Amino acid sequence: MEERTLITRTAPRAGETDGAPVAVGAVGFGAWQIGASWGEVGEGDANAALETAVEAGVSFFDTADVYGDGRSELLVGALLRRHPGITVATKMGRRMEQLPENYSPEHFRAWNDASRANLGVETLDLVQLHCPPTPVYHSEAVFDDLDAMVAEGRMRAYGVSVETCEQALAAIGRPNVASVQIILNPFRQKPLEAVLPAAEKAGVGVIARVPLASGLLSGRYDAGTRFAEDDHRNFNRHGEAFDVGETFAGVDYETGLAAVERLRPLVPEGMTMAQFALRWILDQRGVSVVIPGARNAAQAKANAAAAGFAPLSEEVHAEVAAVYDEFIRPLVHHRW
C-alpha cells in the first residue's frame, strides 16, 4: 500500500537526537465502530477486522479512550502486541463535561495514564484532543502542557480532532501540532478550500474521518434501512448525543440517499461505491490517511483495497463537485 507522511517530526526515541517522520499506509482503520455506538460488533468480528486490515497493508489505527469506555483501545492494544510495527493514535477529552477548564494538566495525565494502560505502552505514538470546545484551541496553557507531556515521554506527538474548519486552522497555527483529524468525504468538501492547503504548507498531517458519511456513501442503504437502538445513526440523527456532523456527516438522510444515486453512475467498473468515496478522498492533495471503520474482515479488506485503484479522472471529480453543490452544499457547507 502507498505510504504517506503523517507526522513530520516526533519526540525522539531512546538513543535518537531527533524524532523521525512517521509514514503510514494511505488507508488506515478507524476503531470507533468496534468500540461502541454502531450496533453490536462481537469481539471475534472486531479482531478479524483488525487482523485482516494488517494483512492488507493497513499500518495506522485510530481509536479513543471513550470508544466503548476503553473497549476499542483494549482491542487495538492487543493488536499492537501482535504487530508491534503499526502506528496507533488515540484521543482524550470526552470523559468529562465539555468545558474548557476541564482540559487541565491533572485530567490530561489521568486520561493519558488510562490510554497507556489500555494500549499497553509507555509512550503513545499520537494523542489527539477529542473535538474540544473552541476556546481550547486558543489556550496557550493547554498546548504548553501537551508539549510538557511529550517531554515527559508520555507521547511522541500530539494533534487535534476537530468539528469545524475554523478549529482546524487554529490548530494548524500551533507550532507543535502534528496532525489534524477532520471530516472529509464527497459530502463534506469545505476542508478542501483552506484546511488542506494550510496543513500542507505547515507540514501538519491530515487524518480524514467519517469518510463514508456513516455508511451513506457505501451505497448499501435505502429509505427502509433500520439501525439498532445503540447505533448513533439512530439515536444521534439530530445531534441528541454529540455533534450531528458525526452522523451521516450532518446530511439529511433522505437527501444523502438521493445524492448517492446521482453519484452511483460515476463509480468505475470493478470498484464499489465505498471504494469510490475512499479513492475520492485519497485523490485530495494534503490528505495523509483516511480512516474508514469496519465491523468485519470483509469490510476491512475492501476498504484497504481502495488504495490500489488509480486516481479518479478530472471529469469524475468535477461531477462529484456538481452533486455536492446541488444536494449537499446548502445543508452543510456553512455549518462546519
Rank of each mutant, 00 (worst) to 15 (best):
Leu146Val: 08
Gly173Ile: 06
His333Pro: 08
Val24Gln: 01
Glu229Gln: 09
Glu122Pro: 08
Ala249Gly: 03
Met149Leu: 14
Ala249Leu: 01
Arg295Phe: 14
Ser37Pro: 08
Arg154Lys: 14
Gly68Lys: 13
Gly70Phe: 13
Arg295Tyr: 14
Val210Gly: 04
Pro197His: 13
Asp325Gly: 13
Gly270Lys: 09
Val150Cys: 07
Val121Pro: 00
Trp111Phe: 14
Trp280His: 11
Leu282Ile: 03
Thr52Pro: 02
Val244Met: 11
Ala20Met: 15
Leu50Phe: 00
Ala223Thr: 12
Val88Lys: 03
Asp145His: 04
Asn236Trp: 06
Glu319Gln: 14
Leu282Lys: 03
Phe187Ser: 11
Pro311Trp: 02
Val267Glu: 10
Leu126Met: 05
Ala171Phe: 04
Glu240Ile: 12
Ala199Asn: 10
Glu3Asn: 14
Asp231Val: 06
Phe29Pro: 02
Val210Lys: 03
Met1Lys: 03
Gly19Asn: 04
Thr123His: 08
Val332Arg: 00
Val289Ala: 02
Met271Pro: 09
Phe60Trp: 02
Asp147Pro: 03
Tyr103Gln: 00
Ala171Met: 02
Gly203Asn: 09
Val58Cys: 01
Ala36Lys: 14
Asn47Ile: 08
Val66Pro: 10
Ala208Glu: 05
Asp62Ser: 01
His333Ser: 10
Glu326Phe: 12
Ile281Arg: 01
Val27Asn: 06
Glu319Pro: 03
Asn185Ser: 07
Lys301Trp: 10
Val195Glu: 09
Ala307Phe: 06
Glu55Phe: 04
Asp231Cys: 03
Asn185Pro: 05
Gly77Cys: 10
Ser179Trp: 07
Tyr253Met: 11
Tyr253Thr: 07
Ala322Cys: 08
Phe60Lys: 03
Met155Pro: 00
Glu163Ser: 12
Glu229Val: 11
